[in-house]
Each structure stands twice: as C-alpha cells, then as structure tokens.
C-alpha cells in the first residue's frame, strides 16, 4: 500500500522543483540553475566552471566582512550605518537593494546604492569624500565593495522592483532609456549595439539581451566576483567598463547620469530574482 506513495514521491519532488518560484530560499547558484532550466539561455549557461565555483564564491567573504563594517561605529562621528535608510527605513536591508535606485526625500533626489552609501558615509559617519573608505570604490579589499556586497546580498532571490511612483524616479528611468539607445563616439555604439539581441557574442563572450528579463537579471546582479579579474566588482564598475569599450568618455560613479542608466536597466529586469552575490566571467 505504501508503494504508490513512494513512486509518487520523486514526481512530487520534481513538481516541487519545477514549481519553485520561491527564489528567496535559494542560494545564488540555485537561482541561476533554475533560470537556466527555464530558458536554456546561452548567456546564463556560458560557463559551467564559474557556476561550479559559486558555492565557494570569494564574494561571500566580502558579505561577512561588509556585515562587520556595517555595524561598526566608524568615522569622525563614530557612528554605524544602522541609521542609514536605503529606502525601507533606517538599517532595514532585506529587499532594499532590489528596490533601488529610488527617490529619497531627505536629499530630494533619486539615488542608486553607490550614491546612497556615499551619502550615509559622509553625513552619518562624517567621512570626507576624500577619505579612503569613501574614495576607494573598487577592489575586493575596499571597504566600499565589502559594504555594497553585504547590503546587496540581503536582496538575494528577491525580485527586482525599482519604484517608479515618484515623478523623479520615472524621469530618471525614461532618461536612462534614451541614453541606453543613444549612439555616439567614433564607433557609433550605444548600449543596444551589444545588448539588444539574444545569443550574440563579442568574440567568445555571450552577451545578455536587455529584452530578456531572465538573462538581464544576471547581467545586472552586481556585486559579483569577476573570475577573470580576481576581484568583486560593482554595478558602477560594469557601467564604466562598457563605456570604455564603447570608446565613450568615463562616467562618474554615483553621478545622476549613472543613476539614470541604472534606473532603466534595473526596470528591465523587473520581476526576476536577483542573484547576489553573483560570479561572472
């Protein structure tokens, strides 16, 4: 009598996996596997070796180190970052990152994580922009990347849902869209040149398509360890790298121009689960 139940068990389990839209309980590599199963995307699938490394992602160290830094009293004002509001109330980090960039009333503008973190480190903790913890933005050894990696990891598996209710949020997203498709420079490139089609490659690298949200969520899931650079990199670092290859001038991290582009590209991944921290080629 028990046999039919036993036979049914694998089917039930398989159904459970197929039905597993609850990404919030999954590790980053499990979210990625689920998206690959769903789409068969060459972009998501391009490096099995990198996927194998994800359970030991070096970025996970930064999550731990960032947590310590976040709760530590620091700076001339000897304050922790618990007083920093990332959009869901002071010190509330769960799901905050997938709802950025967003409008912040205290500064009357739209900010991404980078700009907000600079704001809190300078106002709450009293650091100057020229102080190393704020000034040094790149590299796994930087306080800034540790903090970003910790804060964003509290949104792993949550669905991208940047708010567009405030007129400024809508304005920035729409301007970012114009910028994304705006061709310029000696090569006539826009972001769309590389990110408007599925299965396209620059040399051997498969490119994500902004019109495929399941691909695009991985494309925008930063911070991520970049296996080729042996460093954890940020959204702003990715943006800078793209514009460099496009032969456009360098964008300023945390600037309103960068926020607009990030507002548009985050909106394009709306509804898909964030993979944080990620590991990329």
């Amino acid at each position: 009598m028990t046999k039919p139940i036993l036979y049914a068990l694998p089917i039930l389990m398989a159904a459970g996996v197929a039905h597993a839209t609850n990404y919030e309980d999954m590790a980053p590599e499990e979210i990625l596997e689920a998206l690959i199963d769903k789409t068969g995307s060459n972009y998501l699938n391009q490096s099995p070796q990198n996927r194998q490394m994800m359970p030991d992602n070096p970025a996970l160290w930064l999550v731990d180190e960032g947590e310590e830094l976040f709760y530590e009293a620091r700076g001339p004002k000897n304050a922790s970052l618990e007083g920093c509001d990332f959009g869901k109330g002071p010190g509330v980090l769960e799901g905050a990152y997938v709802e950025m960039p967003r409008y912040f009333a205290d500064v009357d503008k739209v900010m991404d994580l980078e700009a907000r973190l600079v704001h809190c480190m300078t106002t709450l903790q009293g650091f100057k922009k020229s102080d190393a913890p704020v000034k040094k933005r790149h590299g796994s050894g930087s306080d800034f990347m540790k903090l970003q990696t910790f804060i964003s990891a509290q949104s792993n598996g949550k669905k991208w849902n940047p708010p567009l209710d405030h007129p400024q949020e809508k304005a920035m997203r729409d301007a970012g869209e114009v910028m994304f498709y705006r061709r310029a420079g000696p090569m006539d490139f826009s972001c769309q040149t590389c990110h408007g089609d599925t299965g396209k490659r620059i040399r051997a690298s498969v490119l994500p398509n902004i019109n495929e949200p399941e691909e695009w969520t991985k494309a925008i899931s930063w911070p991520a360890e970049r296996a080729g650079q042996l460093n954890v990199r940020s959204t702003q670092h990715r943006l800078r790298g793209c514009l460099w290859q496009m032969r456009h001038p360098q964008i300023i991290a945390g600037s309103d121009a960068s926020t607009a582009l990030i507002s548009y590209w985050t909106d394009a991944a709306r509804g898909q689960p964030a993979i944080l921290p990620d590991l990329k080629r």
Partner: peptide, 13 residues
C-alpha cells in the same frame, strides 16, 4: 533630461 545629464550635470569626464 538625457542631454542634460550627459553634458551639464557632471556625469562624465
């Protein structure tokens, strides 16, 4: 706004 952000807001070097 895109033109403003690109040329007048300190967004690029």
């Amino acid at each position: 706004l895109a033109e403003h952000l690109i040329f007048n807001s300190g967004g690029f070097k």
